[in-house]
Lab assay of single mutants.
Amino acid sequence: MEQATVKWFNAEKGFGFIERENGDDVFVHFSAIQGDGFKSLDEGQAVTFDVEEGQRGPQAANVQKA
């Protein structure tokens, strides 16, 4: 698992990007966020996640709020 920071997340559209420590951004979809209830992330929030290869490149999976 990697630890990184949420760059931005649009709760209405259900997706955003996580900024990795190496500077690369990773796409995150609300369905990858672990937990119950409304799944959203806040800008600047610390998260841990795995990286999977998606249809359009790397994307976050198993996202957990740190």
Rank of each mutant, 00 (worst) to 15 (best):
M1L: 12
M1E: 10
M1G: 13
M1Q: 14
M1A: 14
M1S: 14
M1N: 12
M1P: 13
E2M: 13
E2I: 14
E2F: 15
E2C: 14
Q3C: 15
Q3F: 14
Q3L: 14
Q3G: 08
Q3S: 13
Q3P: 07
A4I: 02
A4L: 02
T5G: 03
T5E: 05
T5I: 13
T5R: 14
T5F: 13
V6Y: 00
V6N: 03
V6S: 00
V6A: 00
V6Q: 01
V6L: 01
V6T: 04
K7N: 04
K7L: 03
K7I: 05
K7Q: 03
K7F: 02
W8P: 01
W8M: 02
W8L: 00
W8F: 07
F9M: 03
F9S: 03
N10R: 03
N10V: 03
A11S: 12
A11M: 10
E12G: 09
E12I: 12
E12N: 11
E12C: 15
K13F: 11
K13T: 08
K13S: 07
K13G: 04
G14Q: 02
G14A: 03
G14C: 07
G14N: 03
G14Y: 01
G14D: 01
F15S: 00
F15P: 01
F15I: 07
F15G: 01
F15H: 04
G16L: 03
G16I: 03
G16M: 03
G16P: 00
F17V: 08
F17Y: 06
F17I: 06
F17Q: 01
F17D: 00
F17W: 07
F17R: 00
F17S: 01
I18D: 01
I18C: 03
I18G: 00
I18Y: 00
E19A: 14
E19D: 06
R20E: 05
R20L: 09
R20P: 04
R20H: 05
E21F: 12
E21G: 10
N22D: 10
N22A: 09
N22P: 08
N22M: 09
G23V: 03
G23M: 09
G23I: 03
G23Q: 09
G23T: 05
G23H: 08
D24L: 12
D24Y: 09
D24W: 08
D24R: 13
D24P: 15
D25T: 12
D25Q: 14
D25A: 09
D25V: 13
D25S: 10
D25H: 13
D25P: 08
V26F: 05
V26Q: 00
V26G: 01
F27C: 07
F27I: 02
F27V: 01
F27N: 02
F27A: 00
F27K: 02
F27R: 00
V28H: 02
V28G: 01
V28I: 08
V28T: 02
V28N: 03
H29K: 02
H29S: 03
H29P: 00
H29D: 04
H29R: 02
H29N: 04
F30K: 08
F30A: 08
F30P: 05
F30E: 05
F30S: 07
S31R: 07
S31P: 05
S31F: 05
S31G: 06
S31A: 06
A32K: 07
A32P: 05
A32V: 07
A32Y: 05
A32G: 08
A32F: 03
I33V: 07
I33W: 00
I33H: 00
I33A: 03
Q34C: 13
Q34E: 10
Q34A: 12
Q34W: 10
Q34M: 13
Q34T: 11
G35D: 08
G35R: 00
G35H: 09
G35A: 10
D36W: 09
D36H: 12
D36G: 11
D36Q: 11
D36K: 12
G37P: 05
G37S: 06
G37E: 07
G37A: 07
G37V: 06
F38A: 07
F38Y: 11
F38V: 08
F38K: 08
F38G: 06
F38H: 08
F38C: 12
K39G: 05
K39L: 10
K39T: 06
K39P: 07
K39W: 07
K39S: 06
K39Q: 09
K39I: 07
S40V: 11
S40E: 08
L41S: 01
L41F: 05
L41Q: 01
L41I: 05
D42E: 14
D42V: 15
D42I: 15
D42Y: 15
D42A: 14
E43D: 10
E43C: 15
G44W: 04
G44Q: 04
G44A: 04
Q45C: 09
Q45W: 10
Q45E: 14
A46E: 11
A46M: 13
A46R: 14
A46V: 15
A46L: 15
A46S: 12
A46P: 11
A46N: 10
V47Q: 01
V47G: 00
V47E: 02
V47H: 01
V47S: 02
V47Y: 01
V47C: 04
V47T: 02
V47F: 00
V47A: 03
T48G: 04
T48P: 01
T48N: 08
T48M: 11
F49K: 03
F49N: 02
F49D: 02
F49C: 07
D50L: 13
D50K: 12
D50R: 13
D50W: 15
D50I: 15
D50T: 15
V51H: 04
V51I: 14
V51S: 05
V51L: 12
V51M: 11
V51F: 09
E52C: 14
E52Y: 13
E52V: 15
E52S: 10
E52G: 07
E52T: 12
E53P: 10
E53V: 13
E53M: 15
E53Y: 15
G54K: 07
G54W: 05
G54S: 10
G54V: 04
G54T: 13
G54I: 03
Q55M: 13
Q55I: 14
Q55G: 10
Q55D: 11
R56T: 07
R56M: 10
R56P: 07
R56F: 14
R56G: 10
G57R: 05
G57N: 02
P58R: 10
P58T: 10
P58E: 06
P58M: 10
P58F: 10
Q59W: 08
Q59V: 10
Q59I: 09
Q59L: 06
Q59P: 03
Q59S: 07
A60V: 03
A60E: 00
A60H: 02
A60D: 02
A60R: 00
A61M: 11
A61Y: 08
A61D: 03
A61C: 11
N62W: 05
N62L: 05
N62A: 05
N62I: 04
N62R: 10
N62D: 02
V63F: 00
Q64I: 12
Q64Y: 09
K65H: 09
K65I: 13
K65Q: 09
K65T: 10
K65Y: 09
K65S: 09
A66W: 09
A66G: 10
A66D: 09
A66C: 13
A66L: 15
